[in-house]
Design a protein around this nucleic acid. Structure first.
Lengths: 247, 247
DNA sequence: ATGTGTGAACTATTTCACAGCC
DNA sequence: GGCTGTGAAATAGTTCACACAT
């Protein structure tokens, strides 16, 4: 029953709605785009269009950070970039470790978006001896045995888990025991963590399934064939699907 | 003003809440896990624990599909797997094309979760001549010029965009023009699509920024240093951050 | 004039709590 | 006795519409 009281405190100022937090990075990206094109000022209408939301939502979101716009004018791009960055905690550096250096881990290691937003990769770790020692994106892959050392030595606060499904919970337990309190999980499993640790999940398979759901209700099947009549067809006639394993 | 009326129709039956749809794949994964371990029946409490939600939410979610449980007993695993699969449209095959075969595209091509859920990869396409012709995960990378042919010939209904940011909107326009109505976007840009096309976004950088936000409000900075006193510090004194590009 | 900031209305989602069926 | 299914209450999120600052 503890720690149900944090998150969402009083009114404007502290306690920014979760939905707003999830959009701030999008606004930030739109703003840096404008910044690069030399734009000094934007209206909520313009910025909202660039970020793919409506202007009322944008204004409401920004109002949670404070009054950083000018009525009748708009928002000063550079100032807003700074305010959002600060709110998101990007004015400080965050140290990241990537565990699991398969195809995905490699892709993550080479991802430019890390460094550009103040995320520093302190280590790439893997359990496979044929991968350990390889040079990836300018770093040498270390052995997973050194996990605790790396976390302690570099002050890692965010662990990115890109291992196979079966290894993820074990790795997660270790990083949490070593003091990490934020985990970004790419393995297709639900991780269990103690209170106070944040986990976010990125799951390709789930996204595809959500798309499939919506695709299904746009008239017809994948190719335009089948189910043209109104009904959904009674259950019990089709073969069961689902036979294969995870990872 | 059109097409504001679709999504969310009447009551139970058709019109499953979006939040529920997003969780069904998680339940499905938990259920297949149980199935592999030979479990025949689960209670909402057990399944909810495996899926990382609370049991009230699980029951409410499942109630949108129909009454597939037995009071006093629980849910029959195999039957529920089938019902959720059907609801998600996984009893039919979906044809996918992956555009952009860099590190990430390669990781996606090799991802086992595709085939195991009825998603068939019909093509890997790239614009880079040094990548075209390579064999990746048992497929030969084709040239992006053939995009329209591949989509038409194989009946692709879902496009996975894993190109650099700058190329994403152009590719998106082409796949949509070729008849694709679902897009999974890994490029860090907001894609603009016509009404009736679904886009879902997977964005590493955004996830990290959300974690950073929450990490920031757990006492102290990344390493426990800094910001120990109560205030947030007045703005205007710090240096602006944010200098680098996207990609 | 113009466009932000925000109460108020509306819609969606979660949680509670318990009637009803096995 | 145990567990589902679901109305009703509570909470979160979105959109409207306009007062007010520039």
């Amino acid at each position: 029953m503890t720690s149900r009281q944090n998150r969402q405190r009083d009114r404007a100022g502290r306690g920014i709605p979760e939905a707003t937090v999830a959009r701030l990075p999008v606004y930030l990206r739109a703003l840096t785009g404008l910044q690069e094109r030399g734009v000094a000022t934007v209206s909520s209408e313009e910025l909202a269009a660039a970020a793919g939301v409506n202007s009322a939502k944008l204004r409401k979101d920004l109002s949670h950070l404070g009054s950083y716009g000018t009525r009748g004018v708009g928002y000063e791009v550079e100032y807003l970039v700074y305010q959002i960055s600060r709110e998101l905690g990007l004015t400080q550096d965050w140290v990241v470790a990537i565990i699991g250096v398969g195809n995905l881990g490699r892709a993550l290691a080479g991802y430019g978006g890390f460094a550009s937003r103040g995320f520093r990769v302190a280590g790439l770790l893997d359990a496979d001896d044929s991968i350990v020692g390889q040079d990836i994106a300018g770093m040498t892959v270390g052995h997973i045995d050194r996990l605790e050392d790396i976390i302690a030595d570099h002050g890692v606060s965010i662990a990115v888990i890109a291992t196979p499904a079966g290894a993820a919970q074990g790795v997660c337990d270790r990083v949490v025991a070593a003091g990490v309190t934020s985990v970004l999980n790419f393995a297709p499993v639900v991780l269990t963590v103690p209170d106070g640790v944040d986990v976010r999940k990125v799951d390709l398979s789930i996204e595809l399934q959500i798309l499939a759901f919506h695709e299904q209700r746009k008239a017809g099947g994948p190719d335009g064939l089948a189910s043209l009549a109104g009904g959904d067809g009674p259950p019990g006639t089709k073969q069961y699907v689902e036979t294969v394993v995870e990872a």
